[in-house]
Design a protein around this nucleic acid. Structure first.
Lengths: 161, 161
DNA sequence: CTTCGACTGAGCAAGTTGTCCAGCGTGCCG
DNA sequence: CGGCACGCTGGACAACTTGCTCAGTCGAAG
């Protein structure tokens, strides 16, 4: 991650449709260089994909909420662990966009979306359908102050390392 | 969002590098159709971008945490509101990947990353540098059970609407 | 001094893109 | 019922990009 990598990522971020050739022109380096840098970034795992970013709101799910789940700690009789069981359960619910185990009061935090505040109840019920979920507290996201971004981080990493 | 849109998004998700022509072959429709669908998805705001997805861990920031901030409610003497001031402040910190105002105990939830648990302290201090932040409680993400995804949601939306 | 890695600038065949066009079937409306 | 808009098809075209290769240059490290 040097300064050129940073500029490359910034360019791709601003105009994702530019190809390697166009990028090389913008950055003022040879095409092969851009290609090599990109390959390296992908190989290093820095760039994980180019998939289309979808907006849940535009898909009809404008409500975002964070659920803090409390998981039954004990392993169930059939041998399935509490966390794994819940993770598998959450993965089957399309409205669950992501989930992390965390420290602190709750055991697991999930980001979910819903068609409306009313619909959110349905989603929560779906989450609660697992026996391993003991409790669920809901925090609704009112507004996005900072939209998900990684570019500033990449630029900082480029500047330092 | 019909079934073809869903298949198209799924294909792009699985293999982002495929072009329009290849996609049309895979989906068994004409190239113009794929192009038209894509344009419409972008125009509708469903697809918000094709930017490269960066992995904070690969950038040297393997620690993820959720900060719940309590914001000073009163408007400051100079007229800057508490929320806006904090949002602007957070936006200047690269380690803050996203932030939302929320209902419930806290006023604002921010996702941050750090180089290590020790480094997390530095990030938290940076967040706390704003006068408008009254309190901050930290929840460290231990593991990702469900990685951020929107495809299942899109497929469900495609099936229904 | 030699070696090594990275970058440049060039070339080539093959493939893709953007943009047209005419034709066809379906559903809607007067 | 005729007419019309709309979306999809299949094809065409020039212009461009990609993947790949290669020789040459440059600076840093051994």
């Amino acid at each position: 991650m040097d300064e050129l990598d940073g500029r490359l990522l910034a360019l791709l971020h601003d105009e994702p449709r530019v190809g390697v050739l166009e990028a090389s022109r913008r950055l003022g380096v040879a095409r092969g260089t851009v290609q090599a840098r990109l390959d390296k970034l992908v190989a290093r795992g820095v760039v994980t994909g180019w998939g289309p970013e979808l907006d849940p709101a535009a898909l009809g799910y404008p409500v975002t909420a964070f659920l803090t789940l409390e998981i039954r700690q004990a392993t169930v009789a059939d041998g399935t662990g509490g966390h794994d069981a819940v993770a598998a359960h959450l993965a089957t619910i399309p409205e669950v966009l992501e989930a992390h185990t965390v420290t602190g009061a709750g055991d697991l935090v999930a980001r979910v979306v819903a068609r409306s505040n009313t619909d959110l109840q349905r989603v929560i019920d779906a989450v609660l359908a697992s026996d391993a979920v003991v409790r669920c507290s809901t925090t609704i996201a009112l507004a996005t102050q900072v939209a998900y971004r990684t570019l500033p981080l990449a630029l900082q990493a480029a500047g330092r390392s």
